[in-house]
Design a protein around this nucleic acid. Sequence first.
DNA 1: TGCATAGTTCAAGAATCCTTGTAGTATGCT
DNA 2: AGCATACTACAAGGATTCTTGAACTATGCA
Lengths: 115, 115
Amino acid sequence: MDSKDAVTCLAALAHEQRLAIFRLLVKIGPPGSPAGEIADAVGATPTAASFHLKELDRAGLIHATRAGRYIRYAVHFDGMRRLLTFLTEDCCQGRPELCGSTIKKARTLCKGGSK
Amino acid sequence: MDSKDAVTCLAALAHEQRLAIFRLLVKIGPPGSPAGEIADAVGATPTAASFHLKELDRAGLIHATRAGRYIRYAVHFDGMRRLLTFLTEDCCQGRPELCGSTIKKARTLCKGGSK
DNA sequence: TGCATAGTTCAAGAATCCTTGTAGTATGCT
DNA sequence: AGCATACTACAAGGATTCTTGAACTATGCA
């Protein structure tokens, strides 16, 4: 992940409805949820929900899969983990004793961590 | 941290220069750096740097302390940790086996983790 | 084939944010 | 006190992003 990708992710999340959608999908986990239910849950019109879901998808934070007439959206844990890793990279010059020594744990997120 | 605070933080970070400043300060850690050096490091004019530093400060991601004629900025680990916690809250409905069981580690960040 | 449902795309106006220069404030030195 | 340095505040133009409704595409069922 480079700086541009990170800015795209952060801009995607820097919006009340999109943040609500993202957190909802984080909570739901791998099974995800169809677009209509997501729209209802966050109080968005179908048009707005579609627009915001596409933004989150483009940023690589969620992904879509068609299931019959529904399109299910689920959080993309790998994208999420890459973003958090990028934000905390080289914390305290790699000398964790400067900040409490636990920052490295931020890198071992959902779906296995390392790499 | 509520949804509005998180959006403020994310919007603050969703900008190339501000993200560069934040990551620089994360890397430097507690000692921080004066505004002028930060401006040079990220290639910003003094005016732009001041503007962006204020944004990050307002969002609670960094904090300023005057040291003589210099104003040093340093990352505010607590604000940073609160944001990461907020983003990963209730991951997979609290059933970490759904996503790899390591998400909880994201909450134990710099400065000692919990609350 | 024809209709209903689920979701997306398009376009235009409105709102917001970014950029930049100039002026101003605070500190330190002589 | 007077001057230089370090940084901040203000303001206006320009660019980007958000919102909304109407039209469009895709799927499933009878």
